[in-house]
Amino acid sequence: MNAPLRDALHAPVRDPLHAPVRDPMVPVPFRIEKVRRDLSDTFTMELVPEAGGEFAFQPGQFNMLYVFGVGEVPISISGDPADRSVLVHTTRAVGQVTEALDALKPGDSLGVRGPFGTSWPVESAFGHDLVFVAGGVGLAPLRPAIYQAMANRQRFGRVIVLYGARTPEDILYKKELERWRGRFDLDVLVTVDRATGKWGGNVGVVTNLIARGGFDPLNTTSFVCGPEVMMRYAAQALEKKGVDTGRIWVSVERNMKCGCGLCGHCQWGPHFTCKDGPVFRYDRVADLFQIREL
């Protein structure tokens, strides 16, 4: 062994004090227990490891899901972090792999690598008002944090979920949102870009809901997830309202092949979105949002 180069390796495999490094590129087979169709192109799967055991994760983290012979795709975890017995993923079928995922049925297997990435710092919001701002399927990566916040409800001031969807038919987790709205300790405001049918709720972009407030901006933490454009404007609206940019968190999407900082694809300025993100503190990346094609 070559001493100076060994120093460059953080975790040498041959170091007898360390267990051999687990290969992060090899998936673990999971079985699909349940599939629920949320929207015309969006579905939620419940998975359990085939070899048994539990799956622990932090809200906001993601897994690489492998469809046998087809490929892999990064999907955020959307279940309750307190429930380690089942792994929940909500996926929108928009590409080859996600469409192949959509074709799987209960009893089928898929591969899981993860969990990867940073998480929503729910604990950092203790003592604050906590405002979730979600757009479209961006509600899915926030749901674990909402569960965690509700499990620690007494630790926060107001807890508010602001959600923007395309149309009333595109509202994700509709029943759950209705249930949450029924709680006296959680404010849920939903708006749609386009009203259809008998929709009698809000119409307009989700940033309008931020402008309406209902929280104490000087004492607020906000988690924002949705399309990048929506997150940029939502963060600006929060900032305009007086929320400290160091207390706004966003979840960024980039191309990911490995999920663990080895493949280089997800680089965004100095960050590996997969391991330095996907959850970033807004003030640390606000400048990057302004650079085109970064």
Binding site: M1, N2, L5, R6, A8, L9, H10, A11, P12, V13, R14, P20, V21, R22, D23, P24, M25, C260, G261, L262, K275
Partner: peptide, 17 residues
Amino acid sequence: VFGDRAFADPGYQTRLS
């Protein structure tokens, strides 16, 4: 690059060490 504390690439590490 391949020696990340959390996720190292075992292949590279073995070959180099």
